[in-house]
Structure formats: C-alpha cells, structure tokens
C-alpha cells in the first residue's frame, strides 16, 4: 500500500515553478518600489534615487536592508498573535493569486513538456476573485490588533472599500466570462490567441475600464489609498508596525500591483500572446520565451499606468469613494453585463 503516490517528477517540476513564480514576483515587487520612486521623480521633473549602485539600481536592496535592521516594536497593548499574523496574511494573499496565472505556453525540457502555469484549474478566474477578497483580512487584522484608533479606522475603511469595489469587479468579470464561456485563465488566453479573434479588450472595453478602477481600489493604490491616508490617519493600518513587518505590508502592496497587472494583461490583453505573430510556426521553446517577454512587457506597461495615476490624481474623499463605487460603478457594470448578454443572445439567434 502506497501512502503518498504521485508523479515525483511532476512534483519537482511544480515545486521549481512555484519557487520561480514566488521569487519572481518578489523580485519584480522589489524593483517596482524602485520604479515607483523613479517614475515619481520623472513625472515631477526630478532625478530620483541614483546613488546606490549604477543608476541607483541597488536602492531596493538598501531599503530592504534598512527595514530588516530596524528595531522591531510590538506595542504592549496590542493583540500579539494577530499583530504578527497581519503582515503575513497580507503577503500570503498577495502571493497566492499567481498560482493560476499562465505565465507562458509550454516549454520542452529534458523530454518533458512543462506547462508554465502552476495549476490550470477550471475555475481560475473565481480563484483569483476569492484570493483578492481574502486580501482584506491582512489589513483588518493588522489594523485591529494594533489597538490604535487610527489603525482601526483605516482597517474599517479598507474593509468597506474592498467589499464595495469587489461587487463591481465581480460584475465586470461576469460580463467577460459571458464572452469567453470559460473560467480557466489558460483557455481565455488560448481563445485570444486564435487567428481572427481579437483580444478581449475589443469585446469588453467598458468592462476593462471598470475592472481597472476596481483593481486600483483593491490594491489600495491612489486615488483609493484611504486605508493609508497619511494626512488624516497618520499612517493608516500599519501605523504601529516597524521593521520587516512594515516592510511586508508595503511589499504586499507592490506584489498585489504586479499580480493585478498580470491578471489584466492575461484576461483583457491576450496574456502571453504576441500580436501579429503566429506562435505555432516557431519552435515551442522560443515561442514560450517570447511569450513570457510579451506578458512581462504588458505587465510593465500596466505597472507604469498604476504609478502614472498615483502621481497624477489626489486621493478621493470617503463619500466620493462610496458614491463612485455604489452609484456609478455597480450600475455601469450591471448595464455592461446586460448589454453583453443581449448581444450574445442576438448573435446566437442570427
């Protein structure tokens, strides 16, 4: 009787893939902090960090080391278990999404065909949605466990914001699912790669816009960064945090940004599809590498858009946030869903 019977090679392959994806996400997030400062500087006619290493490229490591070596302070009146759990939860939720994303097509290595996706589940889109809705626990638990009024206010704001914008996000995703007819992210990408089939942005422009706005809100990025509003809540939910726990919170935001850019690129912009190129004509390994490059380019463009918006628009007021979420986004998403359904029915009837 074999207790744990599985394909050992597959296990190893997936383990390596998971390690690559997680460390890749962390590395990208590391350099996103650098890019954020650089982009902010360039948009404000400044130079940005340029002292640590050539062009300031070692700056993120300097920042990270500084955070690691800072004194770690846990407030006496805080709830210690939850205080420590908060940043970990935020980071875990941020990293978990990458499990279902297809990072590229297959590669052939050592007589094996390796799919560049950790798990191709048939509910990929819903999985992403579920993990995103978990992300708010990190903020809420951290904010509550700090035992500080400002942190609690920020945590409550974060929770209400996340719940409000999840609704519009779900509705815009439903419209997309109506078009694709599948919840698997791999299938969605493959559909967009078919000749004669445009990227989903062509079929769902309004849906994409709604999803983009909701992604900003879910990542707590400006103009929706109310949970960490410096001027009214001091520092928001991570006010009591120091050292690498603070680093985890700050870092989780960048990982979230990377992952949501990857999701948008995957479901609306063809994922690893290279426009005007028939991937089946070139060898699969080269196609896979080119595909990863294409996906990364799209992700970088989205990350730039995130930063560009951050350094352009001021923060929303709380009532503006709620008005936008419930009175504009949700009705628009519903209208988009109904319109999509009607058009699909009309096309089927023809």
């Amino acid at each position: 009787m074999i207790v744990l019977a599985f394909d050992f090679a597959l296990f190893l392959e997936k383990l390596i893939l998971i390690a690559v994806v997680i460390f890749g996400s962390l590395g990208v997030a590391l350099y996103t902090t650098f890019a954020e400062r650089k982009v902010a500087a360039i948009l404000q006619d400044r130079r940005g960090p340029n002292r640590a290493g050539p062009f300031g490229l070692l700056q993120p490591f300097a920042d990270g080391l500084k955070l690691v070596f800072k004194e770690e302070i846990i407030p006496n009146t805080s709830n210690k278990t939850l205080f420590i759990m908060g940043p970990g939860l935020a980071m875990t939720a941020a990293l978990m999404t990458s499990a279902v994303l297809p990072w590229g097509n297959k590669v052939e290595l050592f007589d094996r065909t390796i799919a560049l996706q950790i798990a191709d589940v048939n509910i990929g889109m819903l999985y992403v949605f579920a993990v995103v809705s978990m992300g708010v626990y990190g903020i809420m638990i951290g904010g509550w466990a700090s035992n500080n009024k400002f942190s609690l206010m920020a945590a409550l704001r974060g929770a209400s914001q996340a719940i409000s914008y999840e609704l519009a996000m779900g509705l815009s995703l439903i419209a997309l699912v109506m078009v694709t007819g599948s919840l698997s992210l791999k299938t969605i990408v493959e559909q967009q790669m078919l000749p004669g089939h445009l990227w989903n942005i062509a079929y769902q422009p309004l849906g994409f816009l709604l999803f983009l706005v909701c992604a900003f809100a879910e990542c707590n990025r400006t103009p929706f960064d109310l949970p960490e509003a410096e001027n009214e809540l001091n520092f928001g939910y991570h006010q009591e945090y120091s050292s690498m726990k603070l680093g985890f919170y700050l870092f989780a935001e960048y990982v979230n940004m990377f992952i949501s850019s990857a999701i948008m690129a995957t479901i609306y912009f063809g994922g690893y599809d290279i426009p005007f190129l028939d991937e089946s004509k070139i060898s699969p390994n080269i196609a896979a590498i080119l595909g990863i490059g294409a996906l990364m380019t799209k992700i970088i463009i989205f990350i730039f858009v995130f930063m560009w918006v951050r350094w352009t628009i001021p923060r929303f007021r709380y009532d503006q946030l709620m008005n936008l979420g419930w009175k504009k986004m949700v009705p628009l998403a519903l209208a988009n869903m109904l319109l999509t359904g009607a058009i699909i029915l009309w096309l089927q009837g023809k």
């Binding site: 999985y127 949605f129 609690l152 409550l156």
Partner: peptide, 25 residues
C-alpha cells in the same frame, strides 16, 4: 471545485469580513 471557491468568496471573503467589520466597531 465550484462549490469550494464560491464558499470561499461568499462566506470567508464577504460575510466574514462584514462580521469582523461589525465586531471591530
């Protein structure tokens, strides 16, 4: 799998967040 994910989205993701929200207040 569908029940799995819907259970997570609806209960763990939405309803429990609301519970937590009220209890924290």
């Amino acid at each position: 799998q569908f029940l799995f994910i819907v259970n997570l989205i609806v209960y763990a993701g939405a309803i429990m967040v609301l519970f937590l929200f009220v209890i924290m207040l």
